[in-house]
């Protein structure tokens, strides 16, 4: 079973219809969304996905955007950004169930239908720290449901727990197992430890996310990451993914041969020219827009991220549809005004 099945033309046809319906749905159900579209002069019908009206993802930090009545709010997801602003994402029961189901279907594409023993490259104390819980903890907990017999690879201080990793490999290392963690933690605390201690991760399937910024400083790019994991630990099944709380349940997953992220059947990406806002062809980097049919309880179906990306090709990779990379983050706009705090300046 896979959710990476639709060639681009078929996906475009189904998405433009479903997403147009979602635009109408959110317009009817979410007054702030309706106001924005009215002020921007947005039409009612759309010929292609790239014509759909996008919201800047940061709006979810500034506004309460939901398309369900208060008494149907089942779960409120938050993500803390670096600047302390928090996105608030409202789910009803149906949306919460859908996002879990579709996230499961997406990862099962590479994990298979059965739950696998799971090595979490993180620390259990993460779940106790209320401040970091929402961001990293929620990611780890969300993914933990796709594994069994969980073992934490890091101790309470965030240091590699070599004995725990050895124990996990002794029990489960001779059959497929799941490894999950943030990219830089995997590199610093699993790759380096496994290499040093000659641990065999050959049966592992790694799913990782969280950006490359900390690794770029060490001159490790995605290719180098895969190459060295494979050469030094035997770990060959490596899947990066890209996703955000504002489009919960939708992840863009790296294909088996690496180098590109793929869009599940219910989602897609559009790369936009930040000057004209028109869609850019493959090979041209721009701002990344993510679309997904999962957001029904809040208007997060078409979001302009603050990430830069590039589409590498269409229907020409491991899986059908667009394949793309995330290139980094747009810096935050800063004004050089009079109002400038002493605290920051000092």
């Amino acid at each position: 079973m896979s959710v990476f099945t639709l060639p681009q033309a078929a996906k475009e046809a189904s998405l433009v219809k479903e997403l147009s319906d979602l635009v109408a749905h959110h317009r009817a159900a979410c007054a702030p969304y309706r106001n924005i579209l009215a002020a921007a002069g947005t039409p009612d019908t759309f010929d292609q996905v790239a014509d759909l009206p996008w919201l800047p993802v940061r709006l979810f930090k500034n506004l309460e955007l939901k398309s369900i009545p208060d008494d149907e709010v089942f779960k409120v997801l938050t993500s803390s950004g670096t600047t302390g602003e928090v996105s608030r994402i409202y789910l009803d029961k149906a949306a919460a169930a859908t996002q879990t189901r579709q996230l499961g279907a997406t990862v099962q594409t590479v994990l298979g239908p059965k739950r696998l023993p799971m090595l979490l490259v993180d620390t259990k104390s993460l779940l106790k720290d209320r401040r970091s819980f929402s961001a990293r903890g929620a990611g780890v907990l969300g993914m933990a449901t796709f594994g069994r017999d969980h073992v934490w690879a890091l101790d309470a201080d965030g240091k590699p727990d070599v004995e725990a990793i050895r124990g996990f490999l002794a029990a489960h290392g001779d059959a497929p197992f799941l490894i999950f963690g943030f990219t830089y933690l995997v590199w610093l605390h699993l790759y380096e430890v496994a290499r040093e201690h000659g641990l065999d991760l050959g049966n592992g399937i790694l799913i990782h996310s969280g950006g490359w910024k900390k690794l770029v400083d060490q001159a490790v790019d995605p290719d180098e990451f895969r190459r060295r994991l494979s050469a030094d630990t035997g770990l060959r099944n490596v899947h990066n993914f890209y996703g955000m709380v504002e489009q919960i349940g939708t992840i863009f997953l790296e294909g088996p041969s690496g180098g590109s992220l793929y869009c599940p059947d219910f989602a897609d990406v559009v790369v936009r020219d930040p000057e004209t806002w028109a869609e850019l062809p493959p090979g041209k980097p721009g701002l990344l827009e993510v679309v997904s049919t999962l957001p029904t309880s809040y208007p997060g179906h078409v979001l302009l991220t603050e990430d830069l990306g590039v589409v590498h090709g269409v229907d020409d990779g491991d899986w059908p549809g667009k394949r793309f990379s995330v290139l980094g983050r747009l810096p935050r706009a800063e004004a050089r005004g009079c109002s400038d705090t002493y605290q920051k300046a000092a």
Binding site: N35, A40, R58, L65
Partner: peptide, 8 residues
């Protein structure tokens, strides 16, 4: 972001 915020 700010213009949409005002419209919202």
């Amino acid at each position: 972001v700010n213009a949409y915020g005002l419209a919202a």
